[in-house]
Design a binder for these strands. Structure first.
Length: 647
RNA sequence: GCUGAUGUAGCUCAGUCGGUAGAGCACUUCCUUGGUAAGGAAGAGGUCAUCGGUUCAAGUCCGAUCAUCAGCUCCA
């Protein structure tokens, strides 16, 4: 029997050889590291026999599959430990996740931090017992009986009776007295787990359904060595330093205070500079691309949102209406604007439109207010008041795909300029199982999704499909990036809408002299200024490119005798439109430099007697160090160019 | 909204068994005038998140509220 290894080499083995035996025949290290195998691409336990010619690879912790198996087995190990420590704990779902694993547990006992340390110790103890993990296949009916009567775990029974009701044979993994329903594969033994960190306890709903009971979810991560755990902890520390909430306070970018309200960020001067630069950048780019600016009020009559359909769909996540009564008792209700589109639609229909003037691209940095659930609020990335770089493009059906492409192109240009290279793109389509969620007809959705796909394909973007991620009025292309701790956030978006034109009876006069329905594209490359800047802070760790830095340069005179010259240099920078500060304190140059470095100011202009005599400045760049001396005008031209290039 | 945790000076944190509140950094003043990541001294700074309760006495114990954090649920 011939086995082909990943490097293309072929080896012959007797039929029935196991993954472990293959690994052993290759090397001692690999035998140690082996967690599972793939046989013709299919993951199997390490003791699974290979019975025919096949391509085989040994799965280790270094691969994504290896980590998943390792962490999935670790969730079983944790459940095993909890079962030994706490009587009556019942287990729900316990999968591997991107960074570790969790298990949902139903238990009378409320778990706390001390319990986590105790469970960690028990897990390591079970690991040292090096229990063999074995797979047992059984008919589903037998498994139901086993989990109902032997394991007495009602959650596993529910999974067997519901989720797995079509499956005839299921597998159960055993390790000593512990057993779990699982398709596998798993580690060969518990001894592979050498380092354990249980990170937090939270709650979850059984099967993610808020009408079902809540369970306690314990998150953790494990590694095959202490060294890898230490590296992981170091990465977490690094991520914490990049947290935009921490950096936002340290760098004076924004603040949040209950005196204003939860989820309502205040932009401090330094943060306002960044936001303003980004707005100027996008406005300039949009002017080139034929957008026209508009402004609309922060509140609007509630009837407007009833008409758009937003109010009934999202009434639970809006601030309650403001009610106004005049002397005659007539009542009017206003809503804090939860989105900008209805206003823009009214602008469109404020005059008769000809097919010749389409597409019309209305743009506004529109501030909106949404009453997000309190538990969802998160610094700038999830706020209750935020500003969208919102535009609506009104076009003819024959222009639609081109316009979507233009919007994608603009979004990509924005992301490239800001250095986001790790962006995922999702085609957010509707869920045919849940049509009640959406407006419009089936035909309209089919057309819209076809157009979106065509545009995405034409632009050559790599995307994945998100069923059920569409908004109620149309499919979207969403651009998603990760924050410092790996959470994903949607930033830019391009959305097609055939529904609003109907609701607002938007029309244009075609070449045939008849009224026609335009199509609307909603698009926002930044998405929300707040969220975008929040993610940008984490992405850059607060080390903004020169064009965005709140303070671009600081002039640092070494002693008082050059203060006059330092002031001249500062004045020239200021006149050249460079945001510069002048540090005239009687501190040593080392201290001034340290403080500028800590404040992440990109350019430090050190000035002493030598520079004064030569009419120069000595340039030190943030995190780079001394870059030598330049003539003042030469330096200003150099910085000016870097700023204007936005590099 | 739900579950859990947290809340002491501008920031980071200490505060024992319930007995009148502490450090470092930052800040202010003074001294110091220096060459690429912290010069020295002094001073000022607190309704211990808020409200209520227990107690002779509460930062400390109990309850409620608010906010924040992690996760769940939601996201136009």
């Amino acid at each position: 029997m011939i086995v082909t290894l990943p490097d293309g080499s072929e080896r012959s083995y007797p039929s029935g050889v196991t993954g472990l035996e293959i690994a052993a025949s290759i090397g001692k290290k690999l035998t140690q590291a082996a967690l599972a195998i793939t046989i013709d691409g299919k993951l199997r336990d390490l003791d699974a026999p290979v019975t025919a010619n096949a391509s085989v690879s040994i799965v280790t912790f270094d691969s994504a599959e290896g980590k998943e198996i390792f962490w999935h087995s670790s969730s079983h190990l944790m459940a095993h430990a909890i079962e030994e420590l706490f009587d009556g704990a019942k287990f729900g779902a316990g999968p591997a996740i991107e960074q570790g694993f969790y298990y949902d547990i139903a238990c009378e006992h409320r778990f706390n931090e001390d319990d986590l340390r105790q469970i960690e110790a028990k897990m390591l103890e079970i690991s040292t017992r090096d229990l063999v993990i074995t797979r047992e296949e059984m008919p589903r009916e037998q498994a139901i009986d086993y989990f109902a009567n032997t394991r007495k775990d009602p959650y596993k029974v529910e999974i067997l009776e519901d989720t797995l009701k079509e499956v005839a044979t299921v597998s159960v993994y055993h390790q000593d007295g512990f057993a779990d329903l699982c398709s596998g594969p798993h580690l060969p033994s518990t001894g592979k787990v050498k380092a354990v960190l249980l990170t937090n306890i939270s709650s979850s709903y059984w099967r993610g359904d808020s009408s079902r009971e809540t369970m306690q979810r314990i998150y953790g991560i494990t590694f095959p060595s202490d060294k890898l755990l230490k590296e992981h902890v170091a990465r977490l520390d690094e991520a914490r330093k990049r947290d935009h909430r921490k950096l936002g306070a340290e760098l004076g970018l924004f603040m949040l205070t209950p005196e204003v309200g939860s989820g309502l960020p205040i932009w401090l001067p330094n943060g306002a500079i960044i936001r303003n630069e980004l707005e100027t950048f996008l406005k300039g780019e949009q002017r080139k691309r034929g957008y026209v600016p508009v402004y609309t009020p922060h509140i609007g009559n509630i009837e407007l949102y009833k008409r758009s359909g937003h109010y009934p769909y999202y009434s639970d996540s809006q601030f309650p209406p403001l009610t106004y009564k005049d002397e005659t008792g007539r009542e009017e209700q206003y809503l804090l604007k939860p989105m900008n589109c209805p206003h823009h639609h009214l602008i469109y229909s404020s005059s008769l439109r000809s097919y010749r003037e389409l597409p019309i691209r209305l743009t506004e940095f529109g501030t909106v207010y949404r009453h997000e659930q309190s538990g969802e609020l998160n610094g700038l990335v999830r706020a209750r008041g935020f500003t969208q770089d919102d535009s609506h493009i009104y076009c003819r059906p024959d222009q639609l795909v081109d316009e979507i492409c233009n919007a994608i192109d603009l979004t990509r240009f924005v992301f490239n300029t800001l250095g986001f290279d790790d962006v995922e793109t999702r085609l957010s389509l509707h869920d045919p199982e849940n049509l009640a969620k959406y407006g419009g007809t089936v035909e309209v959705w089919e057309q819209a999704e076809k157009d979106v796909k065509e545009a995405a394909d034409r632009m050559g973007i790599k995307y994945f499909i998100g069923i059920g991620e569409a908004s109620f009025y149309g499919p979207k292309i969403d651009f998603i990036v990760r924050d410092a701790i790996g959470r994903k956030w949607q930033l830019g978006t391009v959305q097609v809408d055939y529904v609003m034109p109907e609701r607002f009876d938007l029309t244009y006069i075609g070449s045939d002299g008849q009224k026609h329905r335009p199509v609307v594209i909603h698009r926002a490359p930044f998405g929300s200024m707040e969220r975008f800047i929040g993610v940008l802070i984490e992405h850059t760790a607060g080390n903004f490119p020169l064009w965005l830095a709140p303070v671009q340069a600081v002039v640092l005179p070494i002693a008082e005798d050059v203060h006059g010259y330092a002031r001249e240099v500062w004045q020239k920078l200021h006149e050249a439109g460079i945001r510069a500060e002048l540090d005239l304190r009687s501190e040593k140059i080392g201290k001034k430099i340290r403080e500028a470095e800590v404040s992440k100011i990109p350019c430090m202009l050190v000035i002493g007697r030598n520079e004064q005599e030569a009419g120069e400045v000595s340039l030190r760049r943030h995190r780079k160090g001394d870059e030598g001396s330049f003539g003042v005008d030469e330096l200003i031209a150099k910085l000016r160019e870097e700023i204007d290039r936005r590099s």
